[in-house]
Measured scan of single mutants.
Amino acid sequence: MSIQHFRVALIPFFAAFCLPVFAHPETLVKVKDAEDQLGARVGYIELDLNSGKILESFRPEERFPMMSTFKVLLCGAVLSRVDAGQEQLGRRIHYSQNDLVEYSPVTEKHLTDGMTVRELCSAAITMSDNTAANLLLTTIGGPKELTAFLHNMGDHVTRLDRWEPELNEAIPNDERDTTMPAAMATTLRKLLTGELLTLASRQQLIDWMEADKVAGPLLRSALPAGWFIADKSGAGERGSRGIIAALGPDGKPSRIVVIYTTGSQATMDERNRQIAEIGASLIKHW
């Protein structure tokens, strides 16, 4: 067993022997301040990774656009098919120029040779490549099948209805392509620590998230040296922004954090800054 596999296998073990965790309302004060600064709703939840206990939450059962955070769930569904012998990570998928959609920095470079399922998941999570996500959605049967996968996990809230990039439209009061912070946090925890996926697939999923290259201005910008984070960000229309993450000190994750916002007129930089400040408060009061 590799060191990384050992780390993920012992996530519940280490967490069980940690000192009790206590909620700190100071972080919620910052979440509410972010709402004021952005002029928009902000949803927040913080779960203990081992027990699933909610440590703090704000608007945990209000719907927010998922945006690209759905790509972690998508690759979880792909990995479940791999575990069941219905898919192979090494299978190569070929596609054409007509398949390319807006923001496809990886797939646009491989029109000639195609990409493997493993490479597509890596591109979808680490670079948020939209064509990679659409190609992977095709392998599982489309958005409705991802929703069905989530329902089978016990998540009857999260739903995907459309493809990239239309799913980022974020129309107010439109339930399409949305989740709730509580539902997303619980589902992410199941994917990373539950028995739904094999140990190898859980490790692969967290490795992809740990290698995320496009979430630097968010929670990662607030992390002290030595902290662990595996995350996936999302951005959408109407001032929408979000991030889902597993993080913790001492090089291992111990909490799940989900943050979503929508309806702001603020710039992307300002949305990023507010999420980073929430992260800084979380870490300060850990």
Rank of each mutant, 00 (worst) to 15 (best):
M1C: 01
S2R: 09
I3P: 14
I3H: 12
I3E: 06
Q4V: 08
Q4L: 09
H5C: 09
H5V: 08
H5R: 08
F6P: 06
R7I: 09
R7F: 09
V8L: 14
I11F: 11
I11P: 05
P12T: 12
P12I: 14
F13L: 13
F13R: 02
F14C: 09
F14S: 08
F14Y: 09
F14H: 04
A15L: 14
A15V: 14
A15F: 15
A16H: 14
C18L: 06
C18K: 02
C18T: 14
C18Y: 06
L19S: 15
F22A: 10
F22S: 12
A23T: 04
H24R: 13
H24E: 12
H24S: 14
P25K: 10
L28G: 07
L28H: 12
V29P: 04
K32P: 01
A34D: 02
E35A: 07
E35P: 01
D36A: 15
Q37T: 12
L38I: 10
L38R: 06
G39L: 11
G39R: 14
A40W: 06
R41F: 08
R41Y: 10
V42I: 13
Y44P: 00
E46N: 10
E46K: 10
L47I: 15
L47K: 04
L47C: 09
D48C: 07
D48Q: 08
N50S: 13
N50K: 13
N50C: 08
G52S: 07
K53L: 13
K53R: 13
K53S: 13
K53T: 15
I54L: 14
I54A: 10
L55N: 08
E56H: 08
E56A: 12
E56Y: 05
S57M: 13
S57F: 09
S57P: 02
F58A: 09
R59A: 06
R59H: 09
P60S: 13
E61K: 13
E61R: 13
E62N: 08
E62G: 07
E62Q: 07
P65K: 04
P65Q: 03
M66V: 14
M67Q: 08
S68M: 00
T69C: 05
V72Q: 02
L73Y: 06
C75I: 07
A77L: 11
S80D: 10
S80Q: 12
S80Y: 15
V82H: 09
V82I: 11
V82D: 05
A84K: 11
A84H: 12
A84T: 14
A84F: 09
A84S: 12
G85T: 07
G85Q: 10
G85V: 06
Q86E: 12
E87R: 02
E87M: 12
Q88V: 11
Q88K: 12
L89Q: 05
L89E: 06
L89D: 05
G90A: 13
G90E: 15
R92T: 11
R92M: 10
H94M: 14
H94P: 09
Y95V: 08
Y95W: 10
Y95C: 03
Q97D: 13
Q97M: 15
N98V: 12
D99V: 09
L100N: 03
L100T: 07
L100K: 05
E102A: 13
E102V: 11
Y103R: 04
P105M: 06
V106S: 08
V106C: 09
V106K: 07
T107A: 10
E108V: 14
E108Y: 08
K109V: 12
H110P: 03
H110V: 05
T112R: 15
D113T: 14
D113A: 12
V117F: 04
V117C: 04
L120C: 06
L120W: 00
C121S: 05
S122W: 11
A123H: 03
I125E: 01
T126E: 12
M127Q: 11
D129T: 00
N130R: 00
N130D: 05
A132G: 05
A133R: 00
A133N: 02
A133S: 10
L135S: 04
L135A: 06
L136E: 01
L136I: 09
L136Q: 01
L137D: 01
L137E: 04
T139C: 09
T139I: 13
G141I: 05
G141L: 04
P143S: 06
P143I: 05
K144H: 09
K144V: 12
E145W: 09
L146S: 01
L146P: 00
T147C: 09
A148M: 15
A148W: 09
A148F: 11
L150P: 01
H151F: 10
N152C: 11
N152Q: 15
D155G: 01
D155P: 01
D155Q: 02
D155E: 04
H156T: 12
H156K: 15
H156L: 11
V157L: 10
V157G: 09
T158R: 00
T158E: 00
T158H: 01
R159P: 00
R159I: 06
R159G: 04
L160D: 02
R162M: 06
R162W: 02
R162S: 09
W163Y: 12
E164T: 00
P165D: 06
E166F: 14
E166D: 14
L167W: 01
N168R: 03
N168P: 02
A170H: 09
I171L: 15
P172K: 10
D174R: 03
E175G: 10
E175N: 13
E175A: 14
R176Q: 13
D177V: 01
D177G: 03
M180I: 12
P181Y: 00
A182V: 15
A182S: 13
A183C: 08
A183T: 12
T187S: 12
K190Y: 12
L191A: 06
L191N: 03
L192G: 02
T193L: 12
G194W: 08
L196S: 15
L196C: 14
L197P: 04
L197H: 05
L197Q: 05
A200K: 13
A200W: 07
S201V: 04
S201L: 06
Q203K: 14
I206Y: 15
D207P: 02
W208N: 03
W208L: 06
M209V: 01
M209A: 03
E210D: 09
A211C: 13
A211G: 13
D212H: 05
D212V: 04
D212C: 04
D212W: 02
V214G: 06
A215Y: 04
A215N: 05
G216V: 07
L218T: 04
L219Y: 03
L219K: 04
R220L: 03
S221R: 13
L223K: 07
P224L: 04
A225I: 13
G226T: 12
G226F: 06
W227F: 08
F228L: 06
F228I: 08
F228M: 10
F228T: 07
I229Q: 02
I229N: 02
I229C: 10
A230Y: 03
D231T: 04
S233G: 10
G234E: 01
A235C: 03
A235W: 01
A235T: 06
A235N: 05
G236I: 02
E237N: 14
E237H: 11
S240C: 08
R241Y: 02
G242E: 01
G242H: 02
G242A: 10
I243L: 11
I243W: 04
I244D: 00
A245S: 10
A245V: 05
A245H: 00
A246K: 03
A246P: 00
G248T: 01
G248F: 01
P249F: 05
P249G: 05
D250W: 10
D250C: 12
G251W: 07
G251Q: 11
P253T: 08
P253E: 06
P253V: 09
R255G: 02
R255E: 03
I256D: 00
I256K: 00
I256A: 05
V257C: 07
I259V: 13
I259F: 07
I259D: 00
Y260S: 02
Y260I: 08
T261K: 03
T261M: 15
T261D: 01
S264P: 03
Q265E: 14
Q265H: 15
Q265G: 15
Q265W: 10
Q265L: 14
Q265S: 15
T267H: 11
T267Q: 13
D269C: 11
E270C: 12
R271I: 11
I275D: 00
I275R: 00
I278C: 04
I278D: 00
G279M: 04
G279N: 03
A280V: 14
A280L: 11
A280K: 15
S281W: 07
L282S: 06
I283M: 11
K284T: 14
H285K: 09
H285V: 09
W286I: 05
W286M: 07
